[in-house]
């Protein structure tokens, strides 16, 4: 029975929540479209880390699959939006 790991989990969860708040402010405020995409990219990485942190906190292995899925779909989404900015089209003929 030690308290150090639950403390660290709570501390890191607070950090990630603040980090997601920063990314959210940039997402809402960002002057250009690329700022918003960058903020969204940061937001999903932070969200994935938060899910992993919940997995550590509850000692459950199910959260791993959720984190993997968020990583996969977040990458696809950010890349599609960045490609759209770059070429004006996501899937080119």
């Amino acid at each position: 029975m030690n308290v150090i790991l639950p403390f660290a989990v709570n501390f890191a969860l607070t950090c990630f929540a603040l980090a997601m708040l920063c990314a959210l402010i940039r997402l809402l405020r960002g002057p250009a479209a690329q700022d918003r995409i960058l903020a969204l990219d940061t937001l999903y990485i932070n969200g994935m880390l938060t899910i992993l942190m919940l997995g550590i906190g509850f000692g459950s292995a199910i959260y791993f699959d959720i984190a993997l899925l968020i990583a996969l779909f977040g990458f696809v989404g950010s890349t599609a939006m960045a490609k759209f900015l770059l070429r004006g089209e996501v899937i080119e003929p």
């Binding site: 790991l5 660290a8 501390f11 920063c22 550590i56 906190g57």
Partner: peptide, 30 residues
């Protein structure tokens, strides 16, 4: 999390605190 033995809990806690701070500073940069 409270049932984890000490040999794993101590380095894991250290890593979590480092990771949380690094991510926070990175997002603060935004």
């Amino acid at each position: 999390a409270a049932d984890v033995p000490l040999w794993a809990a101590l380095p894991a806690a250290l890593l979590l605190i480092c990771g949380g701070l690094l991510t926070l500073v990175g997002s603060l940069g935004l």
